[in-house]
């Protein structure tokens, strides 16, 4: 594996559209649920163990070379909120564009051809990781990091939080991130034999509900 490729893929500057999304943070800030560093940490921990774990399982499975179209269906099953499905597919299209320019490969072309409206973003992430020569565990790491990195950046913008403290929150979560990525990657290692049902399907009902509500706001800073 190329450690540098992982840094490129996981970099918040990778031009795949993530900067316009808060991962539910904007709704959480508006409701008062996140208002300081401690509540940011609680939010990130919750998102990591739910949406983050599920995304990481899908990404890791895609990175093993497992049928990406079947994984895309599995992602739909694991994303009950219509608004969040739309977001996942839109971000998947944007990541597809960036990934095909960065690591062109037949796997990405195949997925793009069969999902012209956009595959779920974690599936594209996994196929891109494979194209970049990365492992399933690498793909899981990129997915879990993104699941908390995006909301933390959004919290800095929305609450004018101290950026050093927000970054320290991410560092304190590092062991959790590693553990979740390992669990996701373990499940992905069994998908070839046991099918997609072994992949994590943890969900955060409040993120689903507020995600749906946020999509209907007339005035908002972030797209999700």
């Amino acid at each position: 594996m190329s450690r540098t490729a992982l840094l490129i893929l996981a970099d918040g500057r990778f031009p795949a559209g993530g900067h316009a999304h808060s991962g539910g943070m904007e709704a959480a800030v508006a409701s008062g649920g996140v208002h300081d560093t401690a509540s940011l940490e609680a939010f990130c921990r919750g998102r990591l163990h739910t949406a983050g774990l599920t995304a990481a399982g899908l990404a890791a499975a895609a990175a093993t070379g497992y049928d990406a179209l079947a994984l895309d269906d599995a992602a739909d099953t694991r994303t009950p909120a219509p608004a969040l499905r739309r977001v996942a597919r839109r971000l998947g299209r944007q990541m597809m564009r960036a990934a095909r320019a960065t690591w062109p490969c037949a796997g990405l072309d195949h997925l793009a051809r069969h999902r012209p409206q956009g595959p779920h973003q974690p599936v594209v992430l996994g196929v891109a990781a494979r194209a970049a020569g990365l492992t399933a565990l690498d793909a899981a790491h990129a997915a879990v990091y993104e699941s908390v990195g995006g909301p933390a950046t959004a919290a800095v913008r929305l609450l004018s939080l101290d950026p050093f403290e927000a970054t320290a929150v991410l560092a304190r979560l590092a062991d959790d991130l590693d553990a979740v990525a390992a669990a996701a990657s373990d499940a992905a290692g069994r998908v070839a034999v046991e099918g997609v049902t072994v992949l994590p399907a943890a969900s955060a009902p409040l993120l689903d509900i507020t995600g749906e509500q946020h999509a209907a706001w007339a005035v908002r800073l972030f797209a999700s």
Binding site: P15, A20, Q94
Partner: peptide, 15 residues
């Protein structure tokens, strides 16, 4: 939608 960073959407991440 530009997520609080209009210049990012036209320059750094045009996706």
């Amino acid at each position: 939608e530009t997520g609080a960073c209009p210049h990012t959407a036209i320059r750094d991440d045009i996706s």
